[in-house]
Amino acid sequence: MTELAGTVALVTGAARGQGRSHAVALAAEGADIIAIDRCADIDSIPYPLATKADLDETVELIQAQGRRVVPVIADVRDLDALRAGVQVGIDQLGDIDIVVANAGVVAIGLKDPLDAQVYRDIVDTNLNGVWHTIAATVPSMIAKGRGGSIVLTSSAQGLVGRGGDGSAAMFAYAAAKHGVVGLMRSAANAYAQYNIRVNSVHPTGVATPMILNEHTARMMQERPNAPSLSANLLPVPFVESEDVTNAVVWLASAKARYITGATLPIDAGHTAM
């Protein structure tokens, strides 16, 4: 018997990177998956975002685990569209047990301190999008009546301010990721009466297309001190998606049944420095 057999899990940002890793691992543990992604670029974000082809690949990987999956193209910044997409998944798979609010963007190297558009897009995705995900899914979890687990993806930058450079992009990222902690703690209090646990995970840099792209590589060459801003205590430049996924699956499982309101770093010691 797999750990999460008979459950339904919803993952945002599921088309690639951490989101894909989480979705496939939850499926391997027995969950059916509602896989949500925007599948389009954002003009202010300086690297390509996931595509419909990426989401299709995630679907195939989940199906290879023998689980059902409903792919949904929706932007977490749009509450109405997200609610509609969530309902499509519920209609096909049933009410939700597990939510992983993972969708996020970054704009490393954009130095303008007054770039209001990039500030808005990052906060709207990384913070408002997390609230939208909670708002769109919790009614289903409550209706199901058997509790559940919500995992919010923050960042090491949600616990510390190291790496700030005065740019609108980095202010937005740190503010949004700190804000996720506030959402998590408030939601943990609000939904404990329904036996719904809410926690946040805080990765350091993860080896995904968010970091491993041409724009970031160019920025690293132009800013020789950049690696020191994101240094880890353990001698690794990045962690892997599976390292974060292991924590997400654990928090979703009965093994973490009494853990709620926690901030869990998966950061190779980044926040301990």
Results as ranks from 00 to 15, higher is better:
A136L: 15
A31T: 03
A53Y: 00
V69R: 00
V69P: 06
L251C: 08
A136Q: 08
T153C: 15
R257T: 01
I33H: 01
S167M: 07
I36M: 07
M141N: 08
N213E: 07
V59H: 08
Y173D: 07
F171T: 13
N232T: 15
D267R: 14
G147H: 10
D124S: 14
I34Q: 02
Q92Y: 05
M141Q: 08
N102T: 07
H270D: 05
T216H: 14
V236Y: 11
R67Q: 15
L82I: 02
S230T: 07
I42E: 06
L212C: 10
V76E: 04
T263P: 11
L114E: 12
A254H: 10
T133R: 00
D121A: 11
M273V: 04
V239N: 12
M220N: 06
A231D: 05
V198I: 07
N102H: 13
S44M: 13
I45Q: 11
S230W: 09
V201M: 08
T204N: 10
S253T: 00
I211C: 01
R223E: 13
A107K: 07
Q193M: 08
H132V: 03
A136E: 10
A172G: 08
V99F: 02
A175H: 02
S228E: 15
L93C: 14
I34E: 09
G205C: 06
S167P: 03
G269L: 13
V249A: 10
G17P: 04
N102G: 14
P224H: 12
L264F: 07
V24H: 08
D112I: 06
T58K: 15
S140T: 11
A103T: 02
I73S: 11
D43N: 08
K255R: 14
T12M: 14
V88P: 00
L234W: 09
C39R: 11
G66A: 10
G261Q: 05
G164I: 13
I122F: 04
L264S: 03
A107N: 12
V236H: 13
I122P: 11
R120E: 14
K177P: 00
S186W: 00
Y173H: 13
A27D: 05
G85H: 13
